[in-house]
Design a protein around this nucleic acid. Structure first.
Lengths: 314, 314
DNA sequence: CCCTGCCATAATCAAATCCTATGCTGCGGC
DNA sequence: GCCGCAGCATAGGATTTGATTATGGCAGGG
């Protein structure tokens, strides 16, 4: 048996907007038949719904004389309120149609620390040009924390290095950012004609601390044993390299952003085209704005930074 | 085939207050299952209605993550409007329960001219004592016009002499008002021990003009040929009688209201108890306030003027 | 790695709603 | 004064809506 729907004192007791619409039509036209026609239903259907509405309200709204339908005093009072309900309901529909399809208002964007300072300025410039109505709330952090913030709704989009865990998140590639070798001036590698990953020394690899995806990427590419001291940021890493403590692989956007350091650190692109990382835009898989995110990703991919490549397919 | 309800652009497009209630519950509890429980439906039913609502609005209101339900930006905006719709709808129910059951506000009351001036003061006094919140809009007129005004809604109640045409109108008797013979001083009838209808002369019967029910009543009782001149009001009739132009039958309330005329006109109650008229309260048969009208009629009957009788049954 | 929580989906079923046809009752015309 | 018309109510049957239970799938915690 069901949970006896008839007895539960539902807060709205079966009140229906359609019935209110019927009542409005009758009140305006003072004619059940014409009201039914306007509402696109048969006259008996409308009569029955009006009757049901009156039963719900406990008030007779209309006085049915043979030739004339009139509003009762109570009906006059209630129809005024019905008008308000309908106006609010219609406004709801209006508002819903005015809702922007894609991004709007303030959107939370996060970026990994090894990318944000070098890429976000260009991204902001582009977004301001194409969508000046959208404002961003920016956050930097490491991959794990960014994904947490993304999952809990604090952020809506994050810029990461691929791969992004599947399932809870959606992602689209933006560009492939090559890594450059960064070494102290006069380093032996600076003179090689071709510079391959295999050429990298197995010692003196300087890395960021745990949690930076750049650390993992470099480590997996170099097949080297990192030094035990680690840098807490790219800026620190620059200085450690300049101090001659070792070499590292740096993302190209970070390199080109600091031309003034060329005297202190020698940077050189590797000839291995695979040495680098794919930057992706990620979002919650459950976020209904997926289409907008993909559009934004496409836009960003088309306007990728000059030194980067198109991302590898897949 | 029906009139394809799916294609007609109904102004509210199937929007339902119940769905809005479901959406409110989900927005508040952030949990489909708990929201379903609060709404007294199963979780799939609620999910489906939310889905339907989102389709109608063209907006995804909620972001369904496995562990967390959150409002989308558009959902946040629309839920505020949904709150307004629901508030107005709830207010409608509140108002409907506050509607007075019976008479309230201003009620249009009509009375025939041969009764109103003599009875309405007492009626107003009584109504003010028992229902001070009800105010009356008073009209006097002849029976035909009063019934027109009653039918078209200008009036809500009328005081008439029975009978009232059945069908469109409802009516309840208030009291039986005897007629008194009104004759010039020294008239032969003044000396009779018993005064019966048969004793009335067949000549010199003075009457009101056409349209007054009192004229018809007197004429049907007297079996006399009225004089060709007629009075336009009871006051005129008094004066014609005082001038010795003839006699008439006057309703007792009009007689007792004018004690100062006793020197000019001799008034005497007939011994025929049937000589008189039954005053009734009438209303539109279609007026849903019938119970209130009957209650008022009962009240008036219990407080009938001292000189009148209880109405004849039937 | 299984177990639990939670929303979505599927299949079925009850009920609300609508339609057509018909009844009833004043009103106006011939 | 009888009759047809207008107009809301009623009846019965069909369709759509919305509800139920059962099940699936996926993420998170022990």
């Amino acid at each position: 048996m069901n949970t006896s729907p008839a007895e539960l004192p539902r807060s709205l007791a079966g009140l229906s907007l359609r019935d209110l619409e019927y009542a409005q039509a009758v009140a305006e036209l003072r004619h059940f038949g014409q009201a039914a026609e306007r509402c696109g239903v048969s006259q008996p259907a409308l009569s029955e719904q009006i009757r049901k509405l009156e039963a719900i309200l406990g008030v007779t709204l209309f006085e049915r004389a043979r030739r004339r339908v009139t509003l009762t005093p109570a009906g006059t009072a209630l129809l005024a309120q019905i008008e308000r309900v309908m106006a609010e309901a219609r406004h709801l529909l209006t508002l819903s149609h005015e809702q922007p399809e894609g991004l709007a208002g303030t959107v939370g964007l996060g970026a990994i620390e090894t990318l944000g300072p070098y890429y976000l300025p260009a991204l902001l410039r582009l977004l301001r040009a194409v969508r000046p109505d959208v404002s961003l709330r920016l956050t930097e952090g490491r991959t794990a924390r960014l994904l947490e913030r993304l999952a809990d709704g604090t952020l809506d989009m994050v810029l990461l290095a691929a791969p992004v865990p599947r399932g809870r998140f959606g992602a689209a590639p933006l560009f492939f950012e090559p890594f450059q070798l960064a070494a102290p001036p006069g380093h032996a590698l600076a003179g090689l004609r071709r510079l391959m990953l295999d050429d990298l020394p197995t010692q003196d690899l300087l890395l960021l601390e745990e949690g930076h995806c750049l650390r993992d990427h470099a480590l997996s590419l170099c097949d080297a044993k990192p030094v035990t001291r680690h840098a807490t940021s790219l800026e620190t890493l620059w200085q450690m390299i300049a101090a001659g403590e070792g070499y590292s692989l740096l993302p190209e956007l970070a390199v080109v952003a600091r031309p003034e350091l060329r005297d202190l650190v020698v940077c050189r692109r590797l000839d291995d085209t695979t040495a680098g990382r794919t930057i992706v835009l990620a979002w919650r898989a459950s976020d209904p704005r997926e289409a907008a995110f993909r559009d934004l990703a496409t836009l960003l991919a088309k306007n990728r930074p000059p030194c980067t490549h198109a991302p590898a397919p897949g």
